[in-house]
Nucleic acid binder design. Structure first.
Lengths: 183, 183
DNA sequence: CAAGAGAGTGATTGATCAATAACCTATTCC
DNA sequence: GGAATAGGTTATTGATCAATCACTCTCTTG
């Protein structure tokens, strides 16, 4: 058995397929863009992190902008997935949502920083991705709050988003004291 | 009288002194940096707005980074000045502070956008300026709340900052619906 | 085994920009 | 009148980078 390989055992996820390379590039892109921002990050830095040549990135992504958009979408997808997975009684839903987000910030800080980086970008496709992402998150949380029968869902969602943003900014600026204080 | 001038009457503020030029450049820099971000904005764009040559900027500012820092400091100074000027009874202080900030966002949107642009920048002097600015604003508002005898000043300030940030982001992303909803 | 597809690279290019160098022009004032 | 001084300009340079081009290498398969 397993006679296709001689020395190394190669699992599906480290086979050098275009699809796997795309994933690796995206993962590296999140880190590099989060660290340096869209305009200062270079495709060469992303390539180096993956261990491929810089031009190869352009075989899998049309251009730098598309790479950034794909990375940003990946970040929003994780947030959406995380919030969708929350199950909690009405009186604990808000606390549980906050806890989930705090955990996400610990496990995937670069995806959060990527969004902070994207806040200032005026490039239309990137701006559109940000708007779609923010709207999707807001709507999802709101529907969860509504379904749970929480009073004033609009206000609660807004407050949640505001505190989340302050949290993001506190992290981006390295100012832990700026983090939201709860009563 | 006024025999120093023949045709045009030149007031002190449009005399071509280095100090006046510095001010004009700073004003243009706020706009250009707010619109395009630190890395994408060019010194040539700033120069064009002022109506001077690009190299002349470097006679008045050591480099691009120093220009950005000066523009950012100017933005924070206005916020501080605005908040310092507020006088209101305890039961109206929060509402009045919010109103002041909303007005500032209307009169000087570019100074707010500049700060959003600065959120992602990792350059040490710029980051330091952001940290100092955010801390100064937070401390000032807190001392106002404390002096007015507001309960839970820490929490109130934090909530105010969070909503302010959400407001900034709503503007930056062109998403008016994202603006904070108050109960 | 030839032909093609898939994965990947090295070399280069064309733009873009911050920053410098060298120079210009008017005014002041000894 | 000549020498600072202040306020500017033109031309240039040296880096940096996204993106393209022209290849190579290695399977697979009819």
């Amino acid at each position: 058995m397993n006679n296709k390989q001689t020395a190394t055992v190669r699992s599906k996820s480290d086979e050098a397929t275009a699809a796997n390379r795309r994933e690796q590039i995206l993962e590296a892109a999140v880190i590099v863009f989060a660290e340096h921002g869209y305009y200062r990050a270079t495709t060469a830095q992303v390539a180096e992190k993956v261990g491929i040549s810089q031009p190869y990135i352009f075989k899998l992504f049309r251009n730098k902008e598309e790479l950034f958009v794909a990375a940003l979408e990946r970040a929003f997808e994780r947030i959406i997935r995380t919030f969708k997975a929350i199950v909690a009684p009405a009186d604990q839903l808000l606390a549980e949502t906050i806890r989930s987000y705090e955990q996400l910030m610990e496990t995937h800080p670069n995806e959060i920083l990527l969004q902070v980086q994207a806040l200032g970008i005026r490039d239309q496709p990137i701006l559109q991705t940000m708007q779609n992402g923010m709207l999707a998150v807001t709507d999802l949380v709101k529907s969860k709050f509504v379904d749970a029968g929480i009073r004033n869902p609009e206000v609660e969602v807004s407050t949640f988003m505001a505190n989340g943003m302050l949290c993001n900014i506190a992290m981006a600026l390295g100012m832990p004291d700026l983090k939201p204080k709860h009563a």
